[in-house]
């Protein structure tokens, strides 16, 4: 069953069209990779799913995205509630300049969790789920900026998980990390698939091939091809997809 249904979505920044008539169904509890050259609109598409694009002035949306049968661009939608269900991890780790504990607790506190014991529990489960608990459990009061880049990024994943989302968006979340940290996070993502629907943007084709179940190739704001990852990389239907995954342009 498709948990995210993107329906004739077009996005404009001022006069510039960033996405053109995107139609895409993303199945539940799977990993979907969005690939394509710089400026193809993959980040825009990702940010449309939790409406982070609303932050951009002069942004206009046509069409719709339906999540679990609910139109997220409907008038009734509160972006705060949407983003609670659709978490996001960014390209660069962006922990708040406070303690590890407060970083994880930030989201639950926003959404009304007050009891210390409950928050303690959430902090532990989230950090465990993000495979960073063992490294930080003794220093939860430590400033999060003192962690390494890879640890910070897993902290940010934990922070996103702490509000208990259904969907997790990852915007090139390993692009700034060393190979070892990248490997850890890739394993983590595969593990998270059991519970979450994951959509990830990546520049790294090998990563898309390693991690994702299905892959979407975008070019100039349009979906060129959407197929199970194995098929898209081995027997691409469109020639442009073939050229891109063979590394002829990018």
């Amino acid at each position: 069953m498709n948990v995210i249904q993107i329906d004739k979505l077009s996005v404009y920044y001022g006069d510039q069209q960033a996405l053109n008539n995107i139609n895409l169904g993303i199945p539940e509890k799977s990993i979907t990779a969005l690939i394509g050259p710089s400026g193809c609109g993959k980040s825009t598409l990702l940010r449309s799913i939790n409406r982070m694009n609303d932050q951009v002035p002069l942004m206009k949306v046509k069409g719709d995205i339906v999540i679990s049968g609910v139109s997220i661009y409907g008038k009734e939608v509160r972006t705060e509630m949407l983003r609670k269900r659709v978490g996001m991890v960014f390209q660069l780790p962006n922990p708040f300049p406070s303690s590890i504990y407060d970083n994880i607790a930030y989201g639950p506190r926003l959404h009304g969790t007050r009891k210390k014991k409950e928050i303690d529990e959430i902090v532990e489960t989230s950090l465990r789920a993000a495979a960073v608990w063992d490294e930080v459990k003794d220093n939860l009061k430590q400033n999060s900026l003192s962690l390494s880049g890879g640890q910070q990024q897993r902290l940010c994943i934990a922070r996103a998980l702490a509000v208990n989302p259904d969907i997790l968006l990852m915007d090139e979340s390993t692009a700034a990390l060393d190979p070892l940290s990248t490997q850890k996070i890739e394993e983590l993502i595969k593990d998270l698939k059991k519970e979450y629907t994951i959509v990830m943007v990546t520049h790294n084709l090998a990563q898309a091939a390693r991690v994702s179940d299905q892959t979407t190739f975008l070019l100039d704001g349009e979906v060129i091809e959407f197929a199970p990852t194995v098929d898209l990389f081995s027997t691409p239907v469109d020639q442009r997809t073939g050229n891109y995954v063979m590394g002829r342009f990018g």
């Binding site: 948990v3 999540i67 679990s68 049968g69 609910v70 139109s71 409907g74 009734e76 939608v77 509630m81 949407l82 269900r85 259904d166």
Partner: peptide, 8 residues
């Protein structure tokens, strides 16, 4: 339909 936001 709003009531279904998102999982049951």
């Amino acid at each position: 339909m709003q009531e279904q936001l998102f999982s049951p």
